[in-house]
Amino acid sequence: MPPTTDYAIEAEGLRKRFGTTQALDGVDLRVGQGRVLGVLGPNGAGKTTAVRILATLLRPDAGSARIGGFDVVRDAASVRRTIGLTGQYASVDEDLTGVQNLVLIGRLLDLSGRDARRRAAELLEWFDLAEAGGRRAGTYSGGMRRRLDLAASLVGRPAVVFLDEPTTGLDPAKREDMWTVVRSLVAEGSTVLLTTQYLEEADQLADEITVIDHGRVIAHDTPLGLKRQAGNRTLSVTPADPAQRAQVAELLAAISGEEPVALPAGGSSVPVVDDEAVTAAVAGLAARGVVVGELSLHLPTLDEVFSALTQTGPQPLANDQEVAA
């Protein structure tokens, strides 16, 4: 029996060095049962190294990790019974058919031939690959290959699933297919650790996000919390009557303490930090008799948060969260 623990994945102080490169420099990770952790970071941040350690493919130089309570070094065999791994590059066997790929994994997981074939059939059905099941995986499109790869990692119905950049290189429609699969995994009770370079992906799927850069955790929070943490929400107000522009600008300056930026449609925007800013703005506008055309509070996108955290260049604004007036 596995030791009891609240966390499906726990890692403390993971360190790993390759030659002169410190790939991991003390990484802590925690994922509750049935939750999705998004591990976010630029290329070379150490995401894949962390996953490979958690999946028992690499030994850490220092630190420890447990999957479902099993130590990844001392009890690797039990960890391997618990996990499913989908690598960064779809690691299906191109010379085997879809069915053969999945049956092989089933056989290696000690299913009988009959059970292995049945499990393969139901997974192919689920991943919409039933028709392609008899074809060589080498003939599959990129999206089909990823789905087969993911199916292969689910043959043993793992309680913990590692998805290492599962959608890298997929077009947006195929990416959403994968998201659907991840959501249904979670609905079945699996715990998922997902690495990604796509902030939108982490935003969509993850309950919590750990941001890694240069082998260190530089932030850990919920997607919303991360956006809040980066501060600098933007409050924008556009009056219905352009003549009231000056009144709006004056009010916003008073609330924020910063010089307002003029907006093209005759409005103004200021950075705000506290949650009362919107309430204050609405009350102030009402007191001045300003009819509001548009009022919005933009949280920074994860892209902006990420740029701020990793100190890379600014990213284009992708999707705003708006608070309607």
Binding site: D110, R119, E125, D128, D177, T180
Partner: peptide, 19 residues
């Protein structure tokens, strides 16, 4: 667009009881 979403998760084969 995709049929994945419409399909329920598969009924389990008992993989917990290996040979």
């Amino acid at each position: 667009m995709t049929t994945i979403a419409e399909r329920p998760a598969p009924t389990p084969v008992d993989v917990a009881a290996p040979a």
